[in-house]
């Protein structure tokens, strides 16, 4: 597999670490309640097809990435910097 890092270009997947579904970026508010937090921490869909994932370019530029991947073919789609997806505050 090869992943197109927005900064480094297309690189071998050995340079990256997988974190999990990009839902991790959508953290509930502190007072959102037990159900919302339980869902956030433990529940994930298991799609056969396109999914959004967090990857870390640890052997490269050290960026967190949100990558679209097809779980059936392992083909990667759009890869974006997590800071561009989530927004980053000064």
């Amino acid at each position: 597999m090869r992943i197109a890092c927005p900064l480094c270009g297309e690189r071998d997947s050995r340079e990256f670490s997988y974190k999990g579904h990009a839902l991790a970026l959508e953290r509930p508010a502190e007072d959102a309640g037990v159900a919302a937090w339980d869902d956030y921490l433990h529940n994930r869909d298991n799609p056969a097809g396109l999914t959004q994932e967090l990857w870390f370019h640890d052997m490269g530029c050290a960026s967190w990435l949100v990558a679209e991947r097809n779980t059936v073919t392992h083909e990667f789609g759009a890869v974006r910097l997590a800071e561009d997806v989530k927004g980053a505050k000064p």
């Binding site: 690189r11 340079e15 640890d58 052997m59």
Partner: peptide, 10 residues
């Protein structure tokens, strides 16, 4: 220039 690995080392 590139950040990459050299035989498993960053």
């Amino acid at each position: 220039t590139a950040r990459t690995e050299v035989f498993h080392m960053a």
